[in-house]
Amino acid sequence: MTRGGLLAGAVAVLALAGGGVAAFALTGEAGTPSESASAAPTATAEITRSDLVDSKTVDGTLGYAGRRVLPNQATGTVTRVRAEGTLVRRGGWLYSVDGRPVSLMYGSIPMYRALSSGSDGKDVEQLERNLEALGYETGTVDEYFSWVTARAVREWQDDRNLPETGSVDASQIIIASGAVRIADVAVEKGDRAGQSVVTTTSTKRVVHIDLAASDQQLARLGAKVTLETPSGGTAKGTITAIGTVAEPPAQEGGDSTIDVEVTAEGKLGRLDQAPVTVDLQSERRENVLSVPVEALLALREGGYGVQVVGTGIVAVETGLFASGQVEITGEGLTEGMKVEVPAT
C-alpha cells in the first residue's frame, strides 16, 4: 500500500487506558491530515527490541502446606507442650500427657491398633523402620513383630520414660509423612487432653492466592512466579495447584475468585499467614520489536499502523500487549526507529 493510501486510511490514534479505547484524531482527505489531526501535539518514542512479558501483581498469603489437626489418643492431663513454630522430626515429642511424651514417627499408615509380639502387617514394618532409623536394633525389618522388635520397643520406651511394655499404640505414637511444624496448640499445661492437642503443618512453604476469575489466564500449572514480602525479601515459586470451581465474590460487586497455590522456593522467613505480593506471568515473547500502545493507528481498511518519523505510516501486525507496550512486525521496521505518539 502507498504512503498516501495509508494516510487516507488512518482513522484514529488509539490510547489504551483502563482497558478502554479512545479516538485521538481523524484524518481529512487522502494523504492530508485534518485540521484537528495537524494541530494535535505529538512526541516520539523508539521502537525497541526486548523480551515482552504479560504479567500482573496480585496479593497472596504466605503459609505452610498440609495443615492437620492431630488426633489424640492419650488420656490424662497435658503436662508439656511445644511452642508454636517448633519443628518436630522423627522420634521427637509433640506433647506430653501425664508426663508421658507422645512421639512423632514417619509413615503413611496411622496407628489404628496396638502393636505387640505376634502382630503382623505393614504397620509393623513401618514401626520397625522407624525404630531402626532412631538407632534401635530390630533384626530383619519385616511385617512380623518378633521378640527382637519387642526388645527394641522396650529400649525406646525406657529412653522416653514410658512404661516398658514392649507394645505400642496411638497414645504413644502419631504418624506423619515427614517432619512437622507446630502451627497451633489447642490447650495449655494442666488442661485435660481432648480429641486434639496440637495442629501441625508440613515444612513446605506455600502461598495461597484468591485470583479473580477474570485473570485466570495468568495461572498455569508449573509456571514460575516471583514472590515479595513486605520487608522486601524475594523468592521464586511455582504454581502447583489451581482450583476448578470459582468462588462467589466476597462482597457485592466484587469478582468471583479461584484458588491458586504456589510452592515457594528459597527463604521467606518463618512467618505464617504473612501477606506477600505475587508477580504472575501469562505469556512471554522473546527478542521482539515493540512500541508504546498509544503509537498504534487504526487503519480504515482494517488493522493497525505506526507513524514512523521520516518515513510515514507503516502497516503493522500486532502481537502481545503487555506493560503499556505492544509487539509489532512490519516491513522495514528496525530497532531504534522513531514513531509518533500523542504528547502528554
Results as ranks from 00 to 15, higher is better:
Trp93Met: 06
Thr79Asn: 10
Ser103His: 06
Arg68Asn: 11
Ser103Lys: 02
Thr77Tyr: 08
Ser50Lys: 13
Trp93Ser: 12
Val102Ala: 05
Pro101Thr: 09
Arg82Tyr: 02
Val88Tyr: 03
Tyr106Glu: 07
Leu94Lys: 03
Val58Arg: 05
Glu84His: 02
Gly85Val: 11
Val53Pro: 00
Asn72His: 06
Arg89His: 13
Trp93Pro: 05
Leu62Asn: 11
Gly92Ala: 08
Tyr64Gly: 07
Ser55Tyr: 03
Ala65Asn: 09
Gly63Phe: 03
Val69Glu: 08
Tyr95Ile: 07
Gly85His: 09
Ala83Trp: 00
Arg89Ala: 14
Ser96Val: 02
Ala83Gln: 14
Gly85Glu: 10
Val102Phe: 03
Ser50Gly: 10
Gly63Glu: 04
Arg89Leu: 09
Val88His: 01
Pro101Tyr: 05
Val88Thr: 08
Gly63Ser: 13
Leu52Thr: 04
Thr57Leu: 05
Gly76Leu: 07
Pro101Gly: 11
Tyr64Asp: 10
Ser96Leu: 01
Thr75Glu: 15
Ser55Met: 11
Val58Met: 05
Gln73Arg: 15
Arg90Asn: 10
Leu104Trp: 08
Ala74Gly: 07
Ser96Arg: 01
Lys56His: 12
Leu87Met: 13
Val81Phe: 03
Ser50Ala: 12
Val102Pro: 02
Arg89Lys: 15
Tyr106Lys: 14
Asp98Ala: 11
Leu94Met: 04
Tyr95Trp: 14
Asp54Tyr: 00
Asp98Asn: 15
Leu87Ile: 15
Ser50Gln: 01
Gly91Phe: 05
Val53Asp: 06
Pro71Ser: 12
Val53Trp: 04
Gly76Glu: 13
Thr86Ala: 15
Tyr106Asp: 05
Arg68Ile: 11
Gly63Ile: 06
Tyr95Gln: 08
Glu84Asn: 11
Arg100Cys: 06
Thr75Arg: 10
Gly85Arg: 05
Gln73Tyr: 15
Thr57Gly: 04
Arg89Gly: 13
Arg80Pro: 00
Thr75Asn: 11
Met105Thr: 15
Glu84Phe: 03
Arg68Ala: 13
Val53Cys: 00
Pro71Asn: 12
Asp51Pro: 01
Asp54Met: 00
Pro101Cys: 09
Arg68Lys: 15
Asp59Pro: 02
Thr77Met: 10
Asp54Pro: 00
Arg100Gln: 14
Trp93Gln: 07
Gly63Thr: 15
Pro71Cys: 00
Leu52Gln: 07
Ala83Ser: 14
Val88Ser: 10
Ser103Asp: 08
Val58Thr: 11
Gly66Thr: 07
Arg82Leu: 13
Gly99Tyr: 02
Ser50Leu: 01
Val97Cys: 08
Ser96Gln: 11
Asp51Asn: 12
Arg100Pro: 08
Asp59Cys: 00
Gly91Arg: 03
Ser50Met: 06
Thr79Pro: 02
Arg80Glu: 13
Ser55Phe: 10
Val88Phe: 04
Arg89Ile: 04
Val78Gln: 12
Arg68Thr: 14
Gly91Asn: 06
